[in-house]
Simulated assay, not measured.
Amino acid sequence: MDSLLKSDQFRIHREAVIPQESAGQRLDQALATLFPEYSRARLQRWLKAGMLVVDDTSPKGRTPVQGGEHIVIDAELEQEGPVLAESIPLDVVAEDDDVLVLNKPAGLVVHPGAGNPDGTLQNALLHHAPSLAAIPRSGIVHRLDRDTTGLMVVAKTLTAHAALVEQLQTRSMGREYLALVNGQFTAGGTVDAPLGRHPRDRLRMAVRNDGKPAVTHYRMVERFAAHTLLRCKLESGRTHQIRVHMASIQHPIVGDPLYGGRLRLPPGGDETINQALRSFSRQALHAEALTLIHPQTGETCRWEAPMPADFAQLLEVLRGVHSS
């Protein structure tokens, strides 16, 4: 593998321009936003080694940016760190030489990190396809929260990786989610509210005037006595976006441990429904559909993943009373 990592096959060339809205940020922060597929540590190494240049210079990471700077990366793609392959079952929906589409279950963390050094999707992918060790983050180009279920796409080549990242950044990749929220809606709508890190709780995100632009479109799928099933479509892809946006309009996702607040039981005292809501201990959010342009063939591809059993069972219980 070491010899492969040193070949031209695993060199990358990327160019980008720092957007004006990043003006005033530190360079390392702006680069992390511009190239989210690479870790900050890797970007810093490239900057120090002269493999990442800013207007033909190599400034320090703490240097503030003005916006409009031209970034060029011409680097050798070394392995990020000691992420080990582990035999963890994967629900593969589709796979070819360029992409892998999978249906992530609840409880599976995407990347190793503090508190989750192993047992993650990245560990599983390296066992499934060892060649992914040469791709940034083992080919993972977007994430789902630990307890969010549904479709994810993984790039199996550097060419596919660059193409999929570009589709994410240009918002040409379509992602649709099913979300069961508290309260009733009478119509669909849009939440257009910038998101950033919560000022006091670093585990949470929040609507902030100085946050990154975030837009979520939603429409009704089914309405219950005290809940609504929504189909949400992302125009951007921020951390916890749907969860924060729904909570911000006073319709948090059922079971959400971070943004849902205390358990809301519907009026009427139906114990079957109350017990079902009490026992559903994760956010009721499922990435149902994924649409993208295949990086090799140029064809538009779409996949759908069925709702997981626990989510479907909760809806059946809610249908036992009133739905419309």
Rank of each mutant, 00 (worst) to 15 (best):
E80T: 08
L151S: 03
V165L: 02
R26G: 03
D145E: 14
H198W: 10
G24A: 13
H127E: 04
V153C: 00
E304M: 10
L314N: 03
L178A: 07
T300E: 15
N274I: 01
A134Y: 15
P136W: 02
R137E: 07
V221Y: 12
P112Y: 07
R62F: 10
V317K: 14
H13E: 08
L125Q: 04
L314W: 08
E176N: 06
A309V: 13
Q250L: 09
A276I: 08
E235R: 11
T33K: 12
Q169N: 13
L108W: 04
F280C: 06
E166P: 05
F10W: 09
A133V: 15
Y259I: 07
E37M: 06
G196D: 15
D28T: 09
Q79H: 08
I73A: 07
A287F: 12
D201V: 10
L47F: 11
G268M: 11
P19V: 06
I18A: 00
M307D: 05
L52M: 10
R40C: 12
H294P: 00
G196S: 14
T228K: 06
L290E: 03
T57G: 08
L144K: 01
R200W: 07
L290A: 02
D118A: 15
G107A: 02
L84V: 12
A312Y: 02
N103F: 01
R278G: 08
R200G: 11
S236T: 15
P266R: 14
D97P: 00
Q29V: 11
E299V: 07
P19Y: 10
R278P: 08
C301Q: 15
P19R: 06
Q169H: 15
S58D: 08
P117H: 13
Q79C: 05
L43M: 12
G81H: 05
L102P: 01
P117W: 13
A226N: 11
R262L: 12
K48F: 11
V109K: 01
H251W: 07
L158H: 09
P199M: 13
V215F: 06
A214S: 13
E166C: 03
T190L: 14
H142W: 13
I88K: 07
I293S: 11
D8N: 15
S248W: 09
R319L: 14
G237R: 07
A193E: 01
G150L: 00
I18F: 05
L277D: 04
T239Y: 04
S324C: 12
I88E: 05
L265R: 07
L102S: 00
E176L: 03
E299K: 06
R264N: 05
V54P: 06
L258Q: 04
R11Q: 05
G113I: 04
A133D: 14
V181T: 07
H322G: 06
R143I: 09
H227D: 06
R11L: 01
A226V: 05
Y38E: 06
